[in-house]
Design a protein around this nucleic acid. Sequence first.
RNA 1: GGGGUAAUAGGGUAGCCUGGUCCAUCCUAGAGCGUUUGGGACGCUUUGACUGCAGUUCGAAUCUGCGUUACCCCA
Length: 486
Amino acid sequence: MSANRENDNNTQSIELLPKKSDFSEWYNEILWRAEIMDVRYPIKGMYVWHPYGFGVRKRVYSILRSLLDVDHDETLFPLLIPEHEFMKEAEHIKGFENEVYWITHGGTTPLDVRLALRPTSETSIYPMYALWIRSHADLPLKLYQVVNTFRYETKHTRPLIRVREITSFKEAHTVHGTWDDAAEQVEAAVRLYQEFYDALCVPVLISKRPDWDKFPGADYTIAFDCVMPDGRTLQVGTVHHLGDSFSRTFDLTYEDINGEQVLCHQTCYGISERCIAALISTHGDDTGLCLPPQTAPVQIVIVPIIMKKREAEVQEAAQVLCDELQAAGFRVKVDARDLRPGAKYYHWELRGVPLRIEIGPRDIDNGVVMTVTRGGTKEAIQRENIAVHIQEKLASVTTEIQSVARERVQGQIHMVSTRGELLDAAKGGVGVLHWCGSKECCEKIEAESEAVLLGGELRGKLVNVDQSNCIICGEPGTASLLGRSY
RNA sequence: GGGGUAAUAGGGUAGCCUGGUCCAUCCUAGAGCGUUUGGGACGCUUUGACUGCAGUUCGAAUCUGCGUUACCCCA
């Protein structure tokens, strides 16, 4: 703002994106400029998906769906939950009661039974599960849905991160015969989510949340956190072992092979549009978005380099190339607008298109096209059999994005082996330390580090998960994650 | 719950203190025409705003009150 004021009127001012190092500003600006979300909807915490952003959402959720569809079925339950069902599970209510929107009227008539807008769907789904499950032959049952859910957030709302309408909540709910079967499903879900975030090239840290921070009503919770550029963490997925607590409440039983009625065991796991926030924040740069090809609504943009004398010829060549690549299965677009080429480059780079192809008179004469990756690698490639080369290019772009992201996050992980290092543990990133699991030690760690202990039993690809002793009390401990979360 | 600050075109802003010179400034974006086009082109034409209501006044973007919304601070 103040910079604008200083601008001379005669200097040419191009509106630059804020630097990514000013993460908060960069994030808001890029959602607007790259046409992801419009934040001007007149209800706090509710935002509108622009078509382009919605296109990203579509790709990302189709990845998620295809992973789930291997052994889950998709379903759809109603948005509204009657009060008497919602109020059945005591711990669950306690966890959500301050965040629930209630429908109290139909028109001007007060309702006999208030209706909750689902903050999550356990209490909507499980009464139906109770009707569906009769015998061990009905198990395991694995369903998921992608729906909107509502939470009356009182803290600062932020698009895609802290919202009052979660527009894109993918929640899976599974039912099993035994606690161990459910535990196995938890492991399977963790693997599935790991695969999902691998596909988005978003590095994640996986940990078991402390008991006091688990999902209301769960036996335990495994959480996924990504590390944002400013060093804060964002919880981007959770997997819960529900044990039999909901089964007791909603009377989920089955007849086992001996003819006995037995309580079911359940899991649920969810991912919201925060995964898109993670995607955007992990890969964007000072120029704009940067989308892994699998997630990009437009994978390739063709920019014709038009010279007056050969305009028709160049336009035609661009269109032929576009058709050919489309036929080969790529998402391609020709930018035929009447703009300077440079303006188009900036336009598509801002929107994160992974690969640009330039084709001009010179290239036509030489039988080549110019390719430029979003990372800036420029190369002329033969026009013959172009689809094969493009396939390789996109694969290399994905690899590049993957390794850049990984390297950044690795740099933000600080190993903490002594108490003295605690204060710096979460500066600009996250700390990894050993912790025994006790509340007392947790409190000391948090007090001495000015950060929050996100969870223990860290696992996965980003850190070594060796066994060691708690840095506070010296008892055996597990690798644990310390950070400041959104 | 208590207090503070703000609201001007699609986005960003100037003007407000000290009412008239404002049929509201500049940047950007949009539309039209022409010249252009290998990293953000240029010229001409043009669209578009004072948050809402009430008041003071000969005269209100500007002062006052109320409402709405947003942000910040305190509890």
